[in-house]
Design a protein around this nucleic acid. Structure first.
Length: 317
DNA sequence: AACGCGAACAACCGCATTAAG
DNA sequence: ACTTAATGCGGTTGTTCGCGT
């Protein structure tokens, strides 16, 4: 394994950082800042490459770093964002103040190993190695019994079955926007917003979509398709972002929220791009409390939690 | 007490992108 | 316009620690 070009120097040290090295780096950065990382090692008296110093500072030493266990709210947000943007850890980290992309990535990688069960013996031999990450066992979820009877062994197979619609899909955790309300109350509230904004939509549209996808019982997963989305995004998502309509988008004390963190220009840019590229489908979903559980619990895939994992996000965002 | 194992975390590597010359 | 260095990011590996046997 070759060293990086900046680390080819003989004296460059590798491996874990000692407290003395940390101290030197902290002292230097707090005094001089970090305008040019390649100059930092020499000026700070460290036998490290600039890249290593940068990584150490960003991931461990900077003062605003937040360490310790992820809160359930953070976990929920990570799941939502990962469902939206995939493995774009830096993007996810930008929505979690004090958390680093590395930390989130590590957490996700260990978390997903723990929470997503290994493939069942019936499907193991048919599954391409590259897709094994996306295998689930549905045996504990009656709602998904239909899936148990099918040889759904890949991400794409599962996605096609659950959401037989053109990609990409996008999910908003609209349920968490209505703090303290039931799913049905959320529907009523969103219905009202539709009317207020003359969006030309109502909950009948929802129910139709729900029935089409077998989600008749609860409006946890609400899907909109095609041209509806522009008016929804303009009339609903933006007001949500600026917290009109009395919504509390934030979770965990109102400081952090997936929708709150999606910038208006990001959303608008994405709508514009994706609407040109394909008649996308979008999922608004209500991730009811308890479905994801807390840290240490095992995930029982449901329509909504499955949705987050399966949804994709346009690369343009 | 010693060992093995797995989880969690820290760090490195390679590639892509960006900025500067 | 091109080259090169610096930086940022995601994937991967290595190390440490805790727990069970």
């Amino acid at each position: 394994m070759g060293h990086h070009s900046c680390c080819n120097q003989q004296k460059v040290k590798r491996g874990l950082w000692s407290p003395e090295e940390d101290e030197k780096l902290i002292r230097y950065i707090t005094t001089h800042g970090y305008g040019c990382w390649s100059e930092v090692p020499e000026k700070a008296g460290l036998q490290r490459c600039g890249k290593s110093c940068r990584l150490r500072w960003i991931n461990y030493l900077r003062p605003d770093i937040r360490r310790g266990r992820f809160t359930p709210e953070e976990e929920k947000l990570i799941i939502s964002l990962h469902g939206a943007v995939g493995n774009r850890w830096a993007h996810i980290a930008s929505h979690l103040p004090g958390r680093t992309d590395n930390e989130i990535k590590n957490y996700w990688n260990s978390w997903i190993k723990k929470k997503i069960r290994k493939p069942t013996s019936t499907s193991t031999n048919k599954t391409p190695k590259s897709d094994q990450t996306f295998q689930f066992s549905y045996t504990q979820n009656p709602q998904l019994d239909c899936l148990n009877n099918q040889e759904l062994t890949t991400k794409s197979q599962v996605q096609e079955t659950l959401f037989p619609l053109p990609s990409p899909s996008f999910i908003f955790d609209i349920g968490s926007s209505f703090q303290g309300t039931s799913a049905s109350a959320s529907v009523s509230r969103i219905d009202q917003i539709f009317q207020e904004n003359n969006a030309g939509l109502n909950s009948d549209t929802w129910q139709l979509n729900l029935q089409q996808h077998g989600q008749v019982q609860t409006p946890e997963l609400v899907q909109f398709t095609g041209p509806m989305m522009n008016s929804i995004m303009e009339n609903i998502m933006v007001p949500i972002e600026v917290q009109n309509y009395g919504m509390n988008v934030g979770i965990g004390g109102g400081q952090i929220g997936s929708l709150d963190c999606l910038q208006r220009n990001e959303i608008n840019e994405w709508i514009e791009t994706s609407s040109q590229q394909c008649p996308s489908s979008y999922f608004f979903w209500d991730q009811a409390e308890g479905q994801l559980g807390t840290a240490g619990d095992e995930i029982i895939p449901t329509s909504s939690s499955m949705g987050t994992m399966l949804s994709s996000f346009p690369s343009s965002l």
